[in-house]
């Protein structure tokens, strides 16, 4: 499957609507009505502060995201002592950059090399390292990914456009506990003179989950 194609994981939830009676005056769906009713109940009963709701949503929609993880990866690429700390005690090393907290309290960083390729999944729910990657994409939460990542990891990687040579060992990490996994991708060729900031701009979310490599800048520049 060409990952460049704009498509959505086995889900009907892809029309990017914005609720409320839409431009065509469509009625609210049952789910929208249920959610509205629940929110007014919780607010009326004083169980939820609407301003806190907005702050929670804003944090994960506009502040936390894969740009955080990209900074961790870039730092590890330029600073061997940091990389060592990252692999030995990931939570503490990541906290040096100011990233910590909910769904990332106990981090583990696993390193991709020319011999080993790591891939992260959560087959039972959709556990994901929020402080460094934000909230998970739809495909990560999909039944398709959760069912197959542990059964046919090479096939899944192929669908992301990554064909691994036979001699590379694949290690899948099923996040069944409160450990949260971040893949440290290989630093691509052709980046020798780049700054930490330039490197961070190359690192993708998918590379930090392990379904992609970080493309070398020469390749990425081509159409």
């Amino acid at each position: 499957m060409d990952p460049a194609k704009e498509e959505i994981v086995g889900s009907s939830d892809h029309d990017h609507d914005h609720d409320g009676p839409g431009p065509h005056g469509a009625p609210l769906t049952e789910t929208q009505l249920r959610v509205k009713a629940l929110e007014s109940l919780l607010v009326d009963k004083g169980l939820v502060d609407p301003a806190a709701l907005d702050a929670l949503i804003d944090t994960y929609e506009t502040q936390v995201g894969p740009h955080n993880g990209a900074r961790v990866v870039a730092r590890a690429w330029v600073n061997p002592a940091f990389k060592q700390r990252l692999l030995e005690n990931a939570s503490a090393a990541i906290a040096e950059l100011g990233f910590a907290g909910r769904q990332g309290e106990d981090m583990v960083v696993i390193e991709n090399t020319s011999k080993v390729h790591n891939l992260v999944v959560c087959t039972l729910c959709s556990c994901y390292p929020w402080p460094v990657l934000g909230l998970p994409p739809v495909w990560y939460k999909s039944a398709a990914y959760r069912s197959r990542a542990v059964f046919d990891p090479r096939g899944v990687l192929r669908e992301f456009g990554l064909e691994l040579p036979k001699h590379v060992e694949v290690r899948v990490w099923d996040s069944t506990a409160e450990l949260r996994y971040l893949v440290l991708p290989e630093r691509p060729a052709g980046t020798e003179g780049m700054s930490e900031e330039q490197l961070a701009a190359l690192v993708t979310r998918n590379a930090m989950i392990g379904v992609a490599r970080v493309p070398s800048p020469a390749k990425a520049a081509r159409p």
Partner: peptide, 17 residues
């Protein structure tokens, strides 16, 4: 469960709800 298909530039949330 079908193939894994990724949305290239998906938003953090797809709906207000």
């Amino acid at each position: 469960m079908g193939p894994v298909v990724a949305d290239r530039d998906e938003p953090v949330f797809h709906h207000e709800w």
